[in-house]
Simulated assay, not measured.
Amino acid sequence: MKIDVQNAWNEMMNRIESWVDALVINLPNIIIAILVFVISIFLSKYISRLTLRLLTKSSLQKSMKNVIAKLISVLVILAGIFLILGILDLSKTLNTILAGAGVAGLAVGLALQGALANTYSGIVLSYIKQIQFGDWIQSNDYEGEVVDLDLRAVTIKQPDNNLVYIPNKLVLENPIKNFSTTAQSRVILSCGVGYSSDLEFVRELVNKTIVENFKPVETADDVIFLYTEFGDSSINFEVRFWIDSTSALEVLKAKTEAVIAIKKAFDANDINIPFPIRTLDFPKNVHVSTN
């Protein structure tokens, strides 16, 4: 028993001595590898900042610029790691790492299909010009101002100041309505007047009211006034005009101001906006009690 313990002890000491000898022999390489790693870290940060400066004048989204800078930084660090493995003569370890990375990458790719789809969609959205920071868009039944765009979701601020996070995949695959692609927005307002009204006077009055209350509308020719139908209790019309804004909130405000102005004009000229009316026709042999 004592002989086995002594042999084990001698074997362990021999191993430790061999490891110490290997450490002493490879100490210069280890020092160089540490220096290469430190240099790689500082170099990655410098190149990341330099990339952001070079991309400042580009038309890419801010989020996309950050992504590109981070990817370049990671590539620099990976290059430094591969160089370190070569300095330490760990080529076999490198091959093992690459083989394991391939298998792990396949497994991770299958498990994170949704996340990867959002990442790819975020990269595509960062390149296209249809969505920019500050644009007022409508997508997936949500409407608001684009305040952020990253590799996971598009963030929009709604008129009630709430934030909505829409996955990039849904934004890319579904229609996008961008109200900010033009300099103006059209306001469309529907109303109705009584059957006894002078229709030509109503048209002239509405056009005049719009011109007086909205600066972008210079003349009555800039207003589109259309009678649309004979309604149940009124003759309905639609008025359309442009405002200098692309925000849906500003369109609603303009519509509100138009409603107030038209109502005041109608009241001043005794023009009636009738309530819905229903006429009940009873047979002659039906007795209606008033008690």
Rank of each mutant, 00 (worst) to 15 (best):
113 Q>H: 08
114 G>L: 13
115 A>G: 12
117 A>Q: 15
118 N>H: 09
118 N>E: 01
118 N>G: 06
119 T>D: 03
120 Y>R: 15
120 Y>K: 15
122 G>R: 00
123 I>Q: 06
124 V>G: 07
126 S>H: 08
127 Y>K: 14
130 Q>Y: 12
132 Q>L: 14
132 Q>K: 15
133 F>Y: 15
134 G>R: 15
134 G>T: 15
135 D>M: 14
136 W>C: 05
136 W>R: 13
137 I>P: 00
138 Q>K: 15
138 Q>S: 13
139 S>H: 08
139 S>M: 06
139 S>F: 00
141 D>N: 12
142 Y>W: 09
144 G>L: 01
144 G>T: 01
144 G>C: 06
146 V>A: 01
147 V>G: 09
147 V>C: 10
149 L>Q: 08
150 D>G: 07
150 D>P: 02
151 L>F: 07
153 A>L: 06
154 V>P: 00
155 T>Y: 11
158 Q>R: 12
160 D>V: 03
160 D>F: 05
161 N>V: 01
161 N>P: 00
162 N>Y: 05
165 Y>C: 03
167 P>G: 10
167 P>M: 12
168 N>W: 03
169 K>D: 13
170 L>F: 11
172 L>I: 07
172 L>K: 13
173 E>N: 11
173 E>F: 06
174 N>T: 04
174 N>R: 11
176 I>P: 04
177 K>G: 11
178 N>H: 10
180 S>P: 04
180 S>Q: 07
181 T>H: 14
182 T>W: 05
182 T>D: 12
184 Q>A: 07
185 S>Y: 08
187 V>Q: 02
189 L>C: 08
191 C>V: 05
193 V>C: 12
194 G>V: 09
196 S>R: 13
197 S>Y: 14
197 S>N: 14
197 S>R: 11
198 D>M: 06
198 D>H: 13
199 L>G: 10
201 F>W: 11
201 F>D: 04
202 V>Q: 02
205 L>K: 14
205 L>H: 11
206 V>C: 05
207 N>Q: 13
207 N>F: 03
208 K>P: 03
208 K>V: 07
210 I>K: 04
210 I>C: 02
212 E>C: 06
213 N>L: 08
213 N>V: 06
214 F>Y: 04
216 P>W: 09
219 T>G: 11
219 T>C: 13
220 A>D: 10
221 D>Y: 15
222 D>M: 13
222 D>C: 14
222 D>Y: 14
224 I>E: 00
225 F>D: 02
